[in-house]
């Protein structure tokens, strides 16, 4: 069955209530404002970026560090490594807890990859963020509260899909990530009205499914 959710697995969630200033500095936090850290590893990176951003909307926390690991979750350095380490920083452990709760909720109920083919070998992430938090908005050069379509797929599928998405709706590209990224996917952040972002995400997703089903197109297909 196509377009089944592939739920992300949270591999570890930990909290450092009173982190050492050297560690805070190394992970990009500001010891003057931040004291506590919340850490999470997940086997899907892009849903985690979305969930980290979601956390900034529910608690007074900053995403100080979030990086994908090379070649993805199948090649992790350990059983808890997954595909990404995300770090929230806040003034006290309560803020961290509130942020982590929002993050977990988002990963469990909202952001996830979907299978784009019957064999479930192709993964697609056609996510719509109706209202950006201050983490992703800063990365994308947009304002908090803007809508954004967060689109990810393997290189070929994504390239065709991004083109379709840009043509299907009144959206513009905030950022396009050509392959290879750390996980060897390709991605794009498109922005516009919420309806346009939704239309773009659906068009992207459909294009990915069609490319996966017919990789060589009409000319060489058969």
């Amino acid at each position: 069955m196509i377009l089944e959710p592939l739920p992300p697995r949270i591999l570890s969630v930990r909290r450092i209530p009173n982190a050492d200033p050297a560690l805070l500095l190394a992970y990009g936090a500001d010891p003057a404002r931040h004291r506590s850290l919340g850490l999470v590893t997940v086997d899907q990176d892009d849903p985690t970026y979305v969930a980290l951003d979601e956390a900034t909307k529910h608690a007074n926390v900053d995403v100080v560090f979030a990086k994908s690991f090379y070649a993805g979750a199948s090649h992790g350095s350990g059983p808890l490594s997954g595909e990404i380490l995300g770090v929230l920083a806040g003034s006290d452990p309560d803020e961290i807890d509130a942020g982590l709760k929002a993050l977990v909720r988002c990963l469990e109920a909202d952001a996830c990859f979907y299978s784009a083919d019957e064999a479930q070998k192709t993964a697609v992430f056609p996510h719509v963020i109706s209202s950006l938090g201050h983490y992703l908005s800063a990365l994308a050069g947009l304002a908090p509260g803007d809508s954004m379509a967060y689109l990810v797929a393997p290189p070929m599928e994504a390239t065709i899909g991004i083109d379709m998405a840009l043509k299907a709706a009144d959206v513009r590209a905030a950022k396009i990530f050509p392959p290879p990224t750390e996980t060897n996917f390709a991605a794009a952040w498109l922005t516009g009205s919420l309806e346009s972002c939704e239309a773009a995400a659906v068009a992207f997703c459909e294009a990915v499914v069609r490319v996966a089903a017919n990789p060589k197109g009409e000319i060489w297909g058969g």
């Binding site: 069955m1 196509i2 377009l3 909202d110 056609p126 719509v128 109706s130 499914v209």
Partner: peptide
């Protein structure tokens, strides 16, 4: 249900998935 999941489910219906 999340909006994105809803959209993808609709698309799946449309594609006959």
């Amino acid at each position: 249900m999340s909006r994105t999941r809803h959209l993808v489910a609709e698309l799946r219906e449309r594609l006959g998935g």
